[in-house]
């Protein structure tokens, strides 16, 4: 092992955020460290996806309280690109189409932004990209296509994972990465995530179902309800949710 591993740490404290003056997140606290895998669960409308957008700095959401620190640096007033360069990555639940921007140029430009100073020769970069495309199950020909242009729901998800492994972020937020993927596709994606997972990188897996957690086992499980963190626990928590749903947490 070379030198000391720089541990990443994302610390969310008492985060509150709204969209169009509607408060979605009320009080969210959570710490994700390098090497850890966290699952964030919760019923529909609990604010799970909002948390993803707010972490990434989506301009439609307004932070009304609390803090988001990555390795001690406050992110709240930072632009999405500054957050990305600091090592944060969000796999979008519904990634959009961006016509005219090729996958190849996009990922390479993004990589150069996130890892300035590393000059990887273009051929070597694309070779590695093609290998990972194979692993996530995207045909090589996609490399020359526009971002998500004509992609199926599953292909979009595979492309998110491809970006993750290529861009090598420090903290990864996966928003419903399992939706739209069939069993085999999910296996491939999970395998790629497991391979990418290392002691430097921390994961926050946002999911409605427990399905993906069978392939990627989280050490920490959190339940978000009505914009507040309702329960923190371990693997047992997600298993109980699978059997009983969320009502018992609500106290109904």
């Amino acid at each position: 092992m070379k030198g000391t591993v720089k541990m990443s740490e994302l610390v969310i404290k008492n985060l509150a955020a709204s969209i169009d003056d509607r408060e979605i997140l009320k009080d969210v606290s959570l710490t994700v460290k390098g090497g850890e895998i966290h699952a964030l669960m919760g019923p529909n409308g609990a604010g799970k996806s909002t948390l993803g957008y707010v972490l990434m700095g989506h301009p439609n959401y307004k932070v009304t309280g609390g803090s988001i620190k990555l390795n001690g640096v406050e992110l709240i007033n930072k632009t999405p690109e500054e957050r990305a360069r600091a090592g944060l990555f969000l796999a979008f639940q519904n990634p959009v189409t961006v016509q005219g921007v090729k996958l190849s140029t996009f990922i390479r430009t993004a990589y150069n932004q996130m890892h300035p100073g590393e000059k990887i020769p273009i051929q070597q970069f694309y070779d590695s990209m093609k290998q990972h495309m194979k692993k996530v199950g995207l045909d090589e020909s996609f490399i020359s296509r526009s971002i998500n242009d004509g992609f199926s729901g599953g292909e979009r998800k595979r492309f998110e994972i491809l970006q993750m492994v290529m861009l090598k972020p420090k903290i990864v937020v996966l928003d419903e990465i399992d939706s739209g993927l069939d069993v085999d596709a999910l296996k491939m994606v999970a395998e790629e995530i497991r391979e990418f997972h290392n002691e430097e990188t921390g994961f926050l897996i946002i999911t409605h179902y427990q399905r993906i957690l069978k392939d990627i086992e989280p050490e920490f499980v959190h339940v978000l309800m009505d914009g507040k963190m309702a329960r923190d626990g371990n693997r047992d928590l997600s298993l109980r949710i699978e059997e009983e749903g969320y009502d018992w947490i609500r106290g109904v």
Partner: peptide, 18 residues
């Protein structure tokens, strides 16, 4: 093709400046 807030935010979330 359309480029709105969502498309721009997507590109920016990968470290690309405006």
């Amino acid at each position: 093709g359309r480029i709105g807030t969502e498309e721009l935010t997507y590109l920016r979330s990968r470290g690309l400046s405006e």
